[in-house]
Design a protein around this nucleic acid. Structure first.
Lengths: 128, 128
DNA sequence: GTAATCCTTGACGCCGACGTCAGGGCAACA
DNA sequence: TGTTGCCCTGACGTCGGCGTCAAGGATTAC
């Protein structure tokens, strides 16, 4: 299959595929005329990348998953390196969610104060 | 006060102040030699901007607060336009936190599955 | 006087994940 | 044979919030 078809089947663009190739993430074979040539396995790799991207992984973080699949494992997360990325991501998410919740609380408090209504509860000695 | 002192007192850089000025957010008077000149009110404006930036507001979102202060109100959030930004930001934060929690759950589930341990509970018909 | 430290403007660099255009080649169909 | 539709490479643009030079002028300290 050529690049346009792969892109369509994965719901992405040819530009994106060329970009992944430039990053060494999804190299392509070439047919006689120089066109990139892909197979079903490439589609699987690509879908793995896209799924992780949707989760907020950056490209480099998807690499262990891609390499895991390319090594013949049934799933991209069948390898220790992938699981390590999962764990790191969970930690990052927990930290981020915690920060966002703290910010949310502060803004909510400020809004309540500015609206002239006393906040429902004192939230401890927060810096405002 | 000149730009360097203001930057130091606000814990930021001269580059940042010139950038804010270029965005029309914190215009400066000029002294005879062409140097930017600031006063205590400018410091207050700047601190308002920085606080909101720390909350994750982008520059444009801080503008209503700055204009509110400049209009003579005691606080940047003493104006309806500022409160509207607060509310919009709360909505955005809620949405974002919700998405992150969903992603966190999916990754956690995948990690559990990949580790060979059955997940503690079925989390409904999530797409994996 | 001169060195050090401020200040000025202008302009390019950075980051990530591509979008978008330019200028060309290859292929298939009428 | 022309037209359409794919493909190629290369390269610049995007976004936000600045960092980091470069080349010069002003001020202050000694």
């Amino acid at each position: 299959m050529r690049i346009g078809e792969l892109a369509a089947r994965a719901g992405t663009t040819t530009r994106t595929l060329r970009y992944y190739e430039s990053r060494g993430l999804l190299p392509a074979r070439r047919s006689g005329n120089g066109y990139r040539s892909y197979d079903e396995d490439d589609l699987k790799l690509l879908r793995q990348i896209r799924t992780l991207q949707d989760f907020g992984f950056d490209l480099e973080e998807t690499r262990p998953f891609v390499e895991c699949l390319r090594a013949g494992h049934p799933e991209g997360d069948s390898c220790p390196a992938s699981l390590a990325v999962y764990r790191r991501k969970l930690d990052e998410l927990d930290a981020l969610i915690g920060e966002l919740r703290a910010v949310r609380a502060k803004i909510g408090l400020r809004l309540a104060l500015a609206e002239g209504e006393p906040p429902l509860c004192e939230l401890g000695g927060q810096e405002l």
